[in-house]
Design a protein around this nucleic acid. Structure first.
Lengths: 120, 120, 120, 120
DNA sequence: GTGGTCTAGACCACG
DNA sequence: GTGGTCTAGACCACC
């Protein structure tokens, strides 16, 4: 896994875990890999994983059971989907439109570009 | 001017200046406000403006003339437009599409949402 | 280390680091001393080192990894060598020749002088 | 006339005047253009010329006569030539050789490059 | 008056 | 502990 420099690694990992949950790699109610396992896999410091897990806990996506590790919460997938849709429509999309306006880019241009991306 | 917390102030200012150049507020070949003037206007420390100006200099958008201030470089507007369009099509757009796919959001939904945004 | 007065300290340090990389003191992929360590060693303010490192980053000679320090980029030594050779042949050498011509100094004189320098 | 950014303008102008004296444009004992004339010609602030003239005065290359302007000193050309030769052999040349060594550039390479420069 | 550099110190996010 | 940012203020060279 590679990390971008403009975003905290622990957030990138948290987001990645969300996609893993959405993709069924970790299922609701099941146990997550231990912090140290995940740290080894992600090739980062264990503290970084702690922060990722902590962040996910605050979002009710996973939950810790003392001494037993972290477990995927019930309803996690649906909650993730809701959060992401909300973020998309309230942040990503408005910013996207703002940039289009500022740069004078039309919807047609965007559609054309998307088609080209798909062709590659 | 208000500053967001997730991005360095000096970068937000630099970007803002780019938009001012695109908007014709500062024209090519003309002199920029002095560092201290701009610092007062933007309500930040002069060193912060120095950093913004320095960043813009490295992008060939403005250039300093010894003891006389900073001047907008020739071709700055076009260069800004190119840089921004490139960033839009190579970073923003692919990321936008990636999110749409991941969240199962269709083009129709996006269009509908944009119309609602315009109505407000 | 001693600093000349006609050139910013942060640039002298950056250049010095380049020579250290060329000399194998810092190798590609390896971690640089921390900003504070280097500041102590160079006996300057940490911010000055930040600027040197920042300058080197923009030249793709080193790169920062969040919270872990700066690392020498791959290909850094070769890139430095290229940059320096280019600067030598496109700036230093023409200026050198220009001065020779203006002062009526011949190649023989130069060679003779170099030999004397070596003898000392 | 164009000015480089890494050297004070007043020094560039002073040096330029030296070459003008060496080239016989201003002859020993003759009057220099007035500060304002020269400022207009060089397209810089008059104070800048004042500094250039002042610098040349300290080197005994020109001298002011109260209310009458600046005159080229007797022996100026010879003095300039001496100063420049000294600077060349004590500063430029050692620095040039130092760079050659650091970059592993041989005398043959330099000669070859000089020939190419002449061919253009 | 202009920018340029350096210092000092604080605070923050990150790992 | 790491870098990153911002502030504050000083001093300098230059125009």
């Amino acid at each position: 896994m590679e990390y971008k420099n403009n975003k905290p690694i622990f957030l990138q990992i948290a987001e990645h875990i969300c996609y893993e949950i959405l993709g069924g790699i970790y299922r609701e109610g099941e146990r997550m890999p231990s912090v140290r396992e995940y740290a080894a896999e992600a090739e980062v410091n264990a503290n970084t994983i702690v922060r990722s897990f902590d962040w996910l806990s605050q979002k009710d996506i996973i939950a810790s059971r003392r001494g037993m590790g972290y477990y995927v919460s019930l309803g996690a997938a649906e909650r993730i989907r809701q959060n992401m849709r909300e973020a998309f429509f309230q942040e990503t999309l408005p910013e996207f439109v703002r940039q289009m306006k500022n740069l004078g880019i039309t919807g047609e241009e965007v559609e054309k570009q998307i088609k080209e991306m798909n062709d590659e």
